[in-house]
């Protein structure tokens, strides 16, 4: 009992080393962003993030990420449903396809999308340098999140409850809405939060695809990078703080959700 409740010496040293590394790598640098943003005072911060071009970038990023998240909630749940409940040849291939956007380097993802939806598109669809390029890139990189959150929950669902609902006269739609949906909503929300956070912070896949046109296709990350390149670190930090606040909000939401899910189980 005592070994799990108090730190012995080895664990204490281990925790010390791990925390030092984690602080040097993650905590101190991220605080540096917030401190640098705060260093110029509230006025400067507010002027930076409400400046025309930055505000336009933030609006575009948040708007497209939200839109993509809505699509992911629907398509992700549908994909998870098919992967769990349906059986057919080639299903293993679809499983691999879902994970590709997660593993593919983002710059390669941009190039890949450009090959089908760019200037020389075999489909005749050219989204390069358009707003829809941002949407497409977000859609690609966020594909796995909702699917991978919903899939295990769906697989664990007790089929007997559905059969009971059906035998009591519930239609398929009613069974889905009243029996299945309530138990997968936390998983869908968690996937949606991750997908939104990923969309908002996306950079690499847009570099070649969106053209980074100010007021049209320039996303927040690109805006921050151009501030860095112009040696305006305070401005970059101010805009970066907005993104960090969004990331933190997502982390908090996920933590609350996870506690609720495990509390129920």
């Amino acid at each position: 009992m005592s070994t799990t409740n108090t730190l012995d010496r080895t664990s204490g040293v281990g925790l010390g080393i791990a925390m030092t590394w984690f602080s040097l790598l993650v905590l101190i640098p991220l605080s540096a962003v917030v401190f640098t943003a705060a260093g110029g005072g509230w006025d400067l911060f507010w002027r930076t993030v409400t400046g025309e071009q930055t505000a336009a970038a933030i609006r575009l990023t948040v708007g497209q990420a939200a839109l993509v998240t809505v699509v992911n909630v629907v398509m992700g749940t549908l994909i998870a449903w098919v992967l769990v409940r349906d059986h057919f040849r080639g299903k293993a291939l679809l499983e691999v396809l879902i994970d590709i956007p997660f593993a593919l380097p983002t710059i390669v993802a941009g190039l890949v999308l450009l090959a089908l939806y760019g200037k020389d598109s075999p489909l005749g669809i050219d989204v390069a340098n358009q707003r829809s390029a941002v949407f497409l890139a977000f859609l690609f990189v966020t594909l796995p999140f909702v699917v991978r959150m919903v899939q295990p929950t769906l697989a664990e669902l007790d089929k007997e409850v559905e059969e009971a609902a059906a035998s009591l006269g519930a239609s398929r739609v009613t069974t889905f809405r009243r029996v299945i949906l309530p138990s997968i909503v936390p998983a869908i929300t968690a996937g949606a939060a991750l997908s939104f956070a990923r969309g908002v912070s996306e950079y690499g896949s847009l570099v070649l695809l969106s053209g980074n046109l100010p007021f049209r296709t320039e996303v927040t990350s690109v805006r921050i990078l151009s501030s860095i390149e112009n040696n305006n670190l305070a401005g970059a930090a101010a805009t970066a703080t907005v993104l960090l606040v969004i990331s933190l909000a997502v982390i908090v939401l996920l933590d609350v959700l996870q506690r609720r899910v495990s509390g129920r189980g």
Binding site: V26, P29, L30, A32, V33, T36, T106, L194, A197, R198, V200, S201, E202, Y203, G204, T220, S221, V222, I224, L225, I228, L233, A236, A237, A240, L243, L244, S247, L248, V250, I251
Partner: peptide, 16 residues
């Protein structure tokens, strides 16, 4: 947290 932080922000944080 690192999973949802923009790579550009990661770079900026390390530079700062």
């Amino acid at each position: 947290l690192p999973l949802s932080v923009s790579p550009i922000v990661v770079g900026l944080a390390l530079v700062l």
